[in-house]
C-alpha cells in the first residue's frame, strides 16, 4: 500500500468518527475518579474511593477470578481444539470439510441471545447451569469459530514445500507439525489467543444465561450491580478492563505485530 496525503476534510471526518466511538469510553475515566455516590458527569469532586471499593467487594473479586480463569482456560482449549480442527480442514481435507468449516463458524452468525436461550435449554437438562464447566462450554461455542477461522486462514497460506522439505530431511509427521508448522503459525496463534481471551472475558449475554447463585463472571456481576446501584464503582472496574484490554493488544503488537496479525 502506498502512502498518499490525506485531505484535511477526511482527517476531520475521521477525527469526529473516532471521538464518537471513544467518547463513551473516555467519559468513564473521569466518572471512575468521582467522589459522588452516584454516576454523574462532571463529578462534583475527585477521589479514588471507588477503586478501593472494588477490592472490598468480595462478589466482584470472586467474579474477577472466575472470569480470568474462564478466559485463560477458554483460550487454551480454543487453541487445543482449533489447531487440530484447522489442520484437518485445511490439510487433510476429508469429505465434507467445506460443510464442516461452515458449521464451525456458524455460531458467529447467530444472535447471541438466541444462542444463549438454546444453551440454557440444553444445559438445564445436563445440570450444567451455574457451573464453571457450563460457562466454559458456552464460551467455547463463541470463541471456537474465531479460532478455527484465524488458524485455518494462517495454515492455508503456509507454503506446503516447507513442510515437505522437513519431511524429506527425515522428520516424521508429528515432528514436522511441532518443529515447522506450529512455529510458522506463531502470529496466528498469538492472534487467536488474544481474540479468545478478550471475547471470553467480555462476554455478557451468554454468561447471563449460564450464571447462578454460586458462580458468576465479572461482566455479569457488573450488570447486576448497575441494575441495583448507581454508584461509580462500575466505572472504576471499566477503566481497569480498558487497561487490561489495552495490555493484551500491546502484547500482541509487540510479539506478532498488530496489523500483520489481525488485518491479514
Amino acid at each position: 500500500m502506498e502512502d498518499r496525503p490525506i485531505s484535511l476534510t477526511l482527517r476531520i471526518v475521521a477525527g469526529i468518527m473516532l471521538l464518537f466511538l471513544l467518547a463513551p469510553v473516555l467519559i468513564v475515566v473521569p466518572i471512575s475518579f468521582s467522589a459522588d455516590t452516584y454516576m454523574a458527569f462532571p463529578p462534583s469532586g475527585w477521589s479514588v474511593k471507588w477503586y478501593v471499593a472494588i477490592f472490598q467487594d468480595p462478589k466482584m473479586i470472586n467474579a474477577f477470578w472466575v472470569s480470568l480463569a474462564l478466559a485463560v482456560l477458554t483460550t487454551v482449549l480454543s487453541l487445543a481444539i482449533g489447531l487440530p480442527a484447522a489442520y484437518v480442514l485445511v490439510r487433510l481435507r476429508p469429505r465434507g470439510s467445506e460443510a464442516m468449516a461452515s458449521f464451525f463458524t456458524a455460531p458467529l452468525l447467530l444472535p447471541s441471545i438466541v444462542l444463549g436461550l438454546a444453551l440454557l435449554v440444553v444445559f438445564a437438562t445436563f445440570g450444567l447451569l451455574g457451573t464453571f464447566q457450563g460457562f466454559l462450554a458456552a464460551h467455547l461455542v463463541i470463541t471456537l469459530p474465531y479460532a478455527v477461522r484465524v488458524l485455518s486462514t494462517a495454515l492455508s497460506t503456509l507454503p506446503r514445500a516447507v513442510e515437505e522439505a522437513a519431511t524429506t530431511l527425515g522428520a516424521p509427521p508429528l515432528s514436522v507439525f511441532f518443529r515447522v508448522t506450529l512455529p510458522m503459525m506463531r502470529n496466528a496463534i498469538v492472534a487467536t489467543s488474544a481474540l479468545a481471551f478478550l471475547v471470553s472475558f467480555d462476554e455478557v449475554v451468554l454468561s447471563l444465561f449460564m450464571s447462578g447463585p454460586r458462580i458468576s463472571t465479572l461482566p455479569v456481576e457488573m450488570y447486576h450491580h448497575v441494575e441495583n446501584e448507581a454508584d461509580p464503582m462500575v466505572a472504576a472496574i471499566s477503566v481497569l478492563l480498558i487497561v487490561l484490554t489495552f495490555a493484551v493488544v500491546v502484547v500482541v503488537d509487540r510479539t506478532a505485530g498488530l496489523s500483520r496479525t489481525f488485518v491479514k
Binding site: P159, A161, V162, E164, A165, A166, T168, V180, M184
Partner: peptide
C-alpha cells in the same frame, strides 16, 4: 535430499 524451486527454508 530435495531442493525446491521456492527454496522452502524454515
Amino acid at each position: 535430499g530435495l531442493v525446491f524451486q521456492s527454496y522452502a527454508l524454515f
